[in-house]
Amino acid sequence: MENTNFGDKNIVPSSFMQTFLIAKYTSIDYLRSRKFLILLIIAVLIGILLTTIVGYFRPSSFLSSPLSFYSSWWGMSVTFIIILSAVFFGGDAISGEFQNKTGYFTVGNPIRRSSIYIGKFLAAVLFSLMILLVFTAITVGNAAYYFNSSSVPYQFIESLLLSVLYIVSAMGLVFFFSSMFKSSTISIIVAVILLLFVFSLLQTLVGTLAHVQPWFILTYGAQSISNVLSNPYPPAVVSLPLSARASFSISSYYVRLGEGVLIMFFYFIVTTVAGLFLFEKKEFN
């Protein structure tokens, strides 16, 4: 491990250790910040809303089996919570260093910019996982109540792991935009528009109308989170004619589990490398 001892009074810690230092102090900042509290409230409110709806209306799509419960409950809401977490914690993580001038406090010290970037990334992922954990607890608690069992189907564990991967990849993408812009508002807006609207629109255009598998879209990969909760797993593609007489058809693509993992992993690697490169090159002026 690289320990930078230059024969003087202080021994500058390795970049690895400095990464954890940044993660530690960013975490303290997040823990006391309003954004963590707001996100926690949103996650709990979504949980309460679903609990109330299911408890009052008792929909059969939720209560026919434990797997269908998780599919309906988790599949419809978790990706939204993940996107919100990524945007809340990652949206201004790097752009804020420029706009709020917090970077001026740290960058002029014996620390690599990559340690700052990765440290902040780790803290953002950690706090997103905490939000996910709260929502998972509400979900499992409800399932245990309706099915009198604390055991969860293995498909839900798979879905949970895919959700963790989605957090990492979505955070990578949001950090990339945060590195690209010096304005926090712009980086947050671009990330929100892309993750909530543009990707969905592209997926519809490319998949449904152009009949091309949208393997290059992150949200398509993230659909594996809900797909694994379907029994049986949906077919790769379903094409339906628009009407009995029309020659035009629409297609629905369902990402395979392996493909979903690869797409999310690919996004994480590419966006993190690109984001780091941008942050290394960006000037504090």
């Binding site: 930078t4 230059f6 003087d8 202080n10 500058v12 970049s15 230092l21 940044i22 102090y25 960013t26 303290i28 900042d29 997040y30 823990l31 006391r32 910040s33 709020n100 001038k101 917090t102 970077g103 001026y104 406090f105 740290t106 002029g108 010290n109 014996p110 620390i111 690599r112 504090f284």
Partner: peptide
Amino acid sequence: KKALKSVGALIETPEIYPSLTEREALSM
């Protein structure tokens, strides 16, 4: 890292993470 090891710098007017205390900021 090597060059700035024995340097103390104040450039412009930096901001510190607002939720940190002075002790935590200096500790970092």
